[in-house]
Design a protein around this nucleic acid. Sequence first.
DNA 1: AGGATGCTCTAA
DNA 2: ACTATTAGAGCATCCT
Length: 973
Amino acid sequence: MFGVTQEGNSVCCNVHGFEPYFYISCVDGIGPDDVPKLRSTLETRMREANRNSKSQTFVTKIEVVQKRSVMYYQVQKARSFLKIFVGLPTMVAGCRGILEKGINIDGIGQRCFLTYESNVLFALRFMIDCDIAGGNWVELPVGAYQKSSRQLSYCQLELDIHYSKIVSYPAVGQYSKMAPFRILSFDIECAGRKGHFPEPEHDPVIQIANLVTVQGEQRPMVKNVMTLKSCAPIVGADVMSFDTEKEVLLAWKEFVKEVDPDIIIGYNICKFDLPYLIERAEKLDVVEFPILGRIRNSRVRMKDASFSSRQYGIRESKELTIEGRVQFDLLQAMQRDYKLSSYSLNSVSAHFLGEQKEDVHHSIISDLQNGNSETRRRLAVYCLKDAYLPQRLLDKLMYIYNYVEMARVTGVPISFLLARGQSIKVLSQLLRKAKQRNFVLPNVKSQGVVSGESFEGATVLDAKAGYYDKPIATLDFASLYPSIMMAYNLCYCTLVRAEDQHYLRLEPEQVTKTPSGDMFVKPSLEKGILPEILEELLAARKRAKADLKLATDPLEKAVLDGRQLALKISANSVYGFTGATIGQLPCLEISSSVTSFGRQMIDHTKKLVQERFTTANSYSHDAEVIYGDTDSVMVQFGTSDVHEAMELGREAAQQISDTFTQPIKLEFEKVYWPYLLISKKRYAGLLWTKPEKYDKMDTKGIETVRRDNCLLVKNLVTECLHKILIDRDIPGAIQYVKNTISDLLMNRMDLSLLVITKGLTKAGDAYENKAAHVELAERMRKRDAATAPNVGDRVPYVIIKAAKGAKAYEKSEDPIYVLENNIPIDPQYYLENQLSKPLLRLFDPILKNASKELLHGSHTRSVSISTPSTGGIMKFAKKRVSCVGCRTPISEENQILCKHCQGREAELYQKTVSNVRDLEQLFGRLWTECQRCQGSLHQDVLCTSRDCPIFYRRKKAQKDLGEAELQLEKWDF
DNA sequence: AGGATGCTCTAA
DNA sequence: ACTATTAGAGCATCCT
């Protein structure tokens, strides 16, 4: 066990005496007397299967214990199980296999056994049995431990203890404090050959930048960079230069040992930086390099890993074992926790920190390295920033707090949170609770449940699509699925098997028959462990939220907020765990019962609202449910008054809640007004939680929140919704659409607005149909395999002009390639395949003849002649005549304002002047930034970072400035 | 031409 | 050895 003390000293604790084990059920005809025979037979079989093993003993002992399977309700509270102990954790799997397949015992014959808890990872088993949760405080009591006689680790403290003597503290009071982890953030630079992505086989590591921070402190304690060849000094950082690459690598290895970090972070370190260092050291025969962990002389082990889950998709990476140090790759964390269009460090930093990285195009890294100490200094500054940004992200997003709290709540080690999926967290809680109640979990083979066999999910009420100018109240069930499981005591151990229903002779009032036809006993007979877990999670969340309100210390607040979030996520994933057909312990009776209750409840709610809130019951209008999804109903009470709608919503929620079993509760949450309902799962509206003012514009499911639309569509739809819902200016929205379409067709659109991104969810050949992003990825692989997108990456592309009738997958192209080669894009495609349908969906409910008005007006006729050689997009400052006030096109060259805006000259002149000034400033700032980034030596190298926001913003500012200056000139006439 | 199917992404 | 769920919209391609 590795850890850190309150004072910040690293500890290695050699825990003794804890043995791996699992259970089997005692089948008929096998009693306690047969145990020695079983042990010796099993021992022989194990020895046969592992002839080369040096192990003395495989099966160390077998105990008879009184336990009970968690599966199905049983009257008998305990029966005999055999607890089988083995010599090493790796022997569990082999032993399990033999017992499940069948074993021939002398005098008894061939027998198969069901095994229990035989799939629990040894580390988790140990933690569960010792009540240790990931990230919590553990005490080694004075007198119970010995100082180790021989140092096996590099830790500051090394101790020996018997497992039974360890004291674990729940994270309350002083024990909820975060440990002072030492965090190392690092980044490497490699000198790739021109046009190639660096490969450890050929390309040297030239720089390694490091930042060491103690968790909770504002400033890093160490900031340095190790460089190959000389490097000019950098203020605020130690520069260490070396003549050979071997020296750089060894300096870093020593540095890691010296700093002794608890956590190693960085961006893409698990897939790039760490493997690169290891492979490079191998190539250079630096044999002593890969000793980076806390165990003496233990080398880092590396293997290819592929993680696949429905939630996160397929993700390939390398799995490195660095003993005693948690690897926390910010890229992996970002991909798990946030849905973004791009996951480059640059883009992520811009998004969360409003800060960009020093952008050095990979093609000039080698030039900088081969220059002098000044150019290498520039590279080092860049490298340092890449080490600094992950630490900033870690702080900004409260990652340590949130992940440590998640580990504490679910009980798994912190390292599992990034390396494993959701189900291990539920399993960990389930095993802990089962142990308390003397249950054991069966090891079901996934074939037991026919994979692909599915169950019915939630009801989505039909959407009465349209534009609603009256307040729409939303009633929600709070934590619907957890509430259902608690209300009806749904659990593995309360489920009455169909074949048991008869002989158990249960009275109707002792059981619940669920709408899906399954039967569960009530808590009076047996309280379910799932409801118990959920109650504890939700009660703990309530406490955390209450404490959060009282807390004043920002660190304490961070801990509590992380905790309440972890508790919420954990409660919600219990249902998913039971429905995971290829999982640890699927139980579709539970999950389909949950959803069947949910369906019944939403129907019931709709019915009650429409029955009770009527003019016949002396309400001013008849209420109408216009939509609902899973746990919510949208109600039009008919009133035009927001406050009244809120009151009615509260009344309805209260009344209807009373008709449900505790703790199921319907809550009034918010009002939408106005509300645009497009279809199921797609709507927009102004959201009100108080009658005075709306909180924000809320959009669900439509283009504005989807990552696979280009910015042009997103921006246009957002702007239209803003004009329709907030400004209530439909003509303004129409004009805006027309102007945008005109800009598009005139080739005045910035390329960055036309970039579409889609995730590459599987390997190219696994796709049955051809798709634009898949084909492009394949073409890019042929151009340069190293920089082409991989499985799990997002692929950005634009649609370019091609022969008539060409498929979209033949017209997709890499935006950078398009920019560099001046390839013309296809505006018509963007109009017909990207813009038109979303716009029509938006305008159809509020505008008759929307198609004619928006997509076929005169603004669509002024198509510019495409100029393939130069490309429309590169001409940024193009003359155009439109009204300064409202951007309506004007026919006369010298006019500034349209008829409509005349009379506002003074105001609009001021606006133009300040606009030019702002743009000048903006452009100047961006230009300086790009200048600094490119370096004065390389002015001819155009920065074309795929997603450098500055690059696009600078180009945009340049274009806008040109236009604004033109406008200003006109005022002088 | 038009329905079926595959694919991506989101709501809850 | 690993894997939380289903419902649904909307688009492109395939297939007849």
